[in-house]
Design a protein around this nucleic acid. Structure first.
Lengths: 166, 166
DNA sequence: TCACATATGTCAGCATTATTGACTTTAATC
DNA sequence: GATTAAAGTCAATAATGCTGACATATGTGA
C-alpha cells in the first residue's frame, strides 16, 4: 500500500477501530507475563505498579506515589502495607520534613521487581526487535500523543524525555 | 538522534522501561474517555468491552463472546444480564442450533456504543493525525508483535488483517 | 430411544482493586 | 496556639474477575 492510500485510510472509523482492538489485545498480553508471577506470590497488578514506580524513583514520598498511580490513599495503603510486611519496600521518615515517608525497595523487593520487569521487558524487547527501530519510533510517537496532557507531568517526572512529540 | 544511535539505545533495559511506562500511561488515557461516560450510566469497562465486540460482530454467540473476552461464563453473565435488562443487547435463539443465543445490539444499545466508541476514537484519531501515517504504521507493527500468538485468532476473527507482521 | 455432550444460565462464595467518608496522629508553618 | 499538611486507618460499597455446583434445553450418535 502506498503512503497516499494509507493517508486516506488510517483515519477512518473502521481503521481506528482496528487499532483500538490491537491496543486492547496488546495490553492484555503485555500484562499477562508479570501477572503470572504475581499470582504465584499472592500479589496483584497493583503491587507491581507500586514496585515499578518505587524502583525507578527510589525515595519518593507516599504522596508522589499516589499522584503517579492516580489512585486514592486508601487504595494504596492496603497495597503498600502488604509490600512493607513482605519486606519488599521500606519506608523511611523524611529528614527535612519528618511527616513524609520516603519509599524504597529492599534488596528482596528489588530482586522481585527485577523478576517481574524482566518478564515484561522480554516481550517488549522481542516485539521491538521484530518491528525494527523505525517502527519503535512510530510506536513511541503515537503513544506520546495518546497520553492525556494531564498526565504529562507524570511521564516527564518518571521517564527521561522519551515522550517524543515530533 | 541518528538511527545508528537509536539502534543501540532502543533495546536497553532503560529504553524498554521508558516505553513500558508510556504504554501504561497511554492505556490509562485511552480508557479514561469511555470510562467517564460509562460511570454516568452506572456501567463499567466490562460492559463496554461486551458492547464493542457485539457491535462489530452482530449475531455472535455467547461462547464466541466468552472466547474473545477471555473471561468466564459466570463473569460475563452478570454483565450480559445487565445489558439485556437495559435493552442494550438482545439475545435470539439460534435457528440452526436452538441451544445457541445470538447476540446483537438494539438501536438503543447501538446509540450508546456509538457514544462510547466515538469518544475513544477521537483521542486515537487526534493522536494519529499528530503522529502521521508512518508513525501509525510503526505503532501497528509493534502492537502486532506484542500480542501473544495465543490471541492471534481473536485479532484475526474480529479485526480485518491489520496485524502487520512486517 | 437412551446416553452423552454441548450451550447457556444461575446460585453461592470469595479475592482484588478501586471508591467515598470519617477520623487520628504527627509534624510543619503561620 | 491555631491551622495546614502528610500519612495511616476503619468501615462501607462497587465492579470485575474467579471457582464450584447445578439446572435446563437441545443436539448427536449408538
Amino acid at each position: 500500500m502506498r503512503v497516499s492510500e494509507n493517508e486516506l485510510l488510517f483515519l477512518t472509523d473502521d481503521g481506528i477501530r482496528q487499532h483500538i482492538e490491537l491496543l486492547f489485545f496488546a495490553y492484555k498480553s503485555f500484562t499477562s507475563d508479570p501477572d503470572q508471577i504475581l499470582e504465584k506470590n499472592g500479589l496483584g497488578r497493583a503491587h507491581h505498579r507500586a514496585l515499578h514506580f518505587i524502583n525507578c524513583r527510589p525515595g519518593l514520598t507516599v504522596s508522589e506515589l499516589l499522584d503517579v498511580l492516580g489512585i486514592t490513599k486508601q487504595s494504596l495503603n492496603r497495597v503498600l502495607r502488604r509490600l512493607i510486611e513482605l519486606e519488599y519496600v521500606q519506608s523511611e521518615i523524611g529528614s527535612l520534613d519528618r511527616r513524609e515517608r520516603h519509599l524504597s525497595l529492599t534488596e528482596k523487593g528489588s530482586r522481585f521487581e527485577q523478576e517481574l520487569s524482566t518478564a515484561q521487558r522480554k516481550r517488549i524487547r522481542e516485539a521491538f526487535l521484530k518491528a525494527g527501530p523505525e517502527a519503535v519510533g512510530g510506536f513511541r510517537k503515537v503513544l506520546g500523543h495518546i497520553i492525556d496532557p494531564s498526565l504529562d507531568e507524570m511521564v516527564e517526572k518518571f521517564g527521561t524525555g522519551q515522550k517524543d512529540r515530533g
